Amino acid sequence: MTDSPLKTKLQSCENKPVSISGFSIGHRGAPLQFPEETVQSLDAAARMGAGVLECDVAFTQDRGLVCRHSLCDLHTTTNILTIPELASKCTVPFTPANGTSPAYALCCTSDITTAEYSTLCGKQDGFNASATTPEDYQNGTPNWRTDLYNTCGTPLTLNEYIDLVDSYPGHRNFTPELKTPPVPMPFNGYTQQQYAQDLIDAFRNKSIAPSRVWLQSFLYDDVLYWLKNDREFGAQAVFLQEYDTPETLAAGMKNLPSVRAAGVNIIAPAIPMLVTIGGPDNNTIVESEYSKAIKANGMDIIAWTFERSGPLATVDAREEYYFNSIANITQYDGQYYVLLDVLANEIGVKGLFSDWAATVTYFANCFGLEGPKGGSYSCE
């Protein structure tokens, strides 16, 4: 970092005790170094003080709920292609690269049973597009991540995730995201509404207080379902948003009053929706108009995803999504903290998803950020 009051403040906290912070949310665990959505990934995020831990919830062929960022990412996040009896069940089996086409496969949780899912090894997300064998296809981890801990991560069912998070020392909370199914719904009779209800039922069956659970979905209808059918859980459900064009962002802003009127208390936009370039010299990270509109409509903000972008010196050249609204003024890694300062201390986000929770936990402790207050939201 360049010298600044922010750098001085952060340095002043160097030797202070660090505690668990609800502001720090472990995104898929800690996938910067560990295979995402695995025991090892969540363990790492918990050790780094994340007060909230995520499970992206997908369903299997027999309607079991499991932790996977997409229903259809098993070919890049697990070793399924190296297990012939399971690889043969993939929606699209492995096709080797040839002179005109890259290697390809498509394997979904809905292709296999829960028991079969639990036999897989989680790996770092990535693939080798030039692969001619399933084994070669397993490679492709971005060079700014690491394969040091890429050794058969243990996959999790939703029930296993609940038990694991509940077992960690300190008071940890849950943020399960109901993934939007890429397969047609109803799936063999399984409706979107039952899927949404099954997610709540898993926590009810484990006697987890609704105040500890921050349900998430990109589908507005899921959030409305929770608000209508279980207001204790619905009151702090998180409406995820990703608007990538001026037109979709404008439409989202126009809909904010009706979203608030429906009872939604928390919106979670992607980071580039919340910040832009401004200031007297037009060289400063500032709050976006969309962020201001969310707060003006009386809703809290949780942001995603921090430290998912690799080296900041190349985010512009790589057209990196999470910095696309400020890429023109992003050149060095210390600006991660500058961005974090704007999100936390200027915009006032209540929590931040991160691929490496230690950074956000340190910042939250330094500035006394506690995260959203479970049980304090009302649907009225």
Rank of each mutant, 00 (worst) to 15 (best):
70 S>E: 14
64 G>K: 14
237 A>L: 10
93 P>V: 07
59 F>P: 10
277 I>M: 12
158 L>E: 04
167 S>H: 08
92 V>A: 09
188 N>D: 15
251 A>W: 00
107 C>N: 08
283 N>A: 13
65 L>N: 02
192 Q>A: 14
165 V>C: 10
112 I>R: 11
29 G>Q: 03
16 K>N: 09
186 P>A: 03
148 L>T: 13
279 G>W: 02
268 A>L: 06
100 T>V: 11
6 L>Y: 14
176 P>Q: 09
219 L>F: 01
201 D>K: 14
147 D>I: 07
332 Y>G: 02
327 A>P: 13
319 E>F: 06
342 V>G: 06
185 M>C: 15
328 N>A: 13
46 A>K: 02
125 D>E: 13
23 F>V: 11
273 M>D: 13
372 P>E: 02
248 T>K: 09
18 V>K: 15
270 A>V: 07
152 C>N: 07
200 I>H: 10
279 G>D: 12
36 E>D: 10
180 T>Q: 13
210 P>T: 06
367 F>P: 07
161 Y>Q: 05
363 F>E: 03
294 I>S: 09
207 S>L: 09
241 Q>A: 08
104 Y>A: 14
124 Q>Y: 09
63 R>Y: 15
276 T>Y: 10
350 K>H: 03
211 S>D: 11
51 G>Y: 00
197 Q>C: 08
368 G>N: 02
11 Q>L: 08
252 G>C: 12
267 I>V: 15
152 C>H: 07
166 D>M: 09
302 I>T: 09
190 Y>C: 07
21 S>V: 09
212 R>I: 01
23 F>P: 15
271 I>Y: 03
210 P>S: 06
69 H>V: 06
221 D>N: 15
369 L>G: 06
186 P>L: 04
290 Y>G: 13
77 T>N: 14
89 K>D: 03
374 G>A: 07
9 K>Q: 12
169 P>K: 12
139 N>D: 12
253 M>W: 01
297 N>F: 13
192 Q>S: 14
96 P>M: 09
155 P>W: 04
93 P>E: 04
45 A>S: 14
58 A>I: 06
